[in-house]
Amino acid sequence: MLTQLPYLAVVLIAGIGIATILLKKNLIKMIMGLGVLTGSANLFLVTLGYRDGGIAPIYTSAPEGVMVLSTVQAMTVTNIVIGFATTALLLAFAIMLYRKYGSVETGDIRRLRE
């Protein structure tokens, strides 16, 4: 049961992220929700790759034990970088929209519609 705990945390965090995106009207808060969702994806990946008692595959003076292929960790690092880039881009858009529209509420950012 205890090993399942991280997955529960993933679902919970993802739920918070999705709820933020759906319920909050403020663009900055929505981007924050997206960040939370990215975090839950990262947690999910890292949890998948965790092997109890495994060691990192660095051969120089490696201790005894089972080496773990670190694909998932690499994926997580990549996703953190991608998440950083998207958040930066989205925040830049939010700044630009605030300058042009004078608001970051999604209710006001709908000049393109119908």
Partner: peptide
């Protein structure tokens, strides 16, 4: 700002 709105939605 219109293009930014489109870009934001896409992103």
């Amino acid at each position: 700002g219109l293009s930014v709105e489109g870009g934001l939605k896409y992103a």
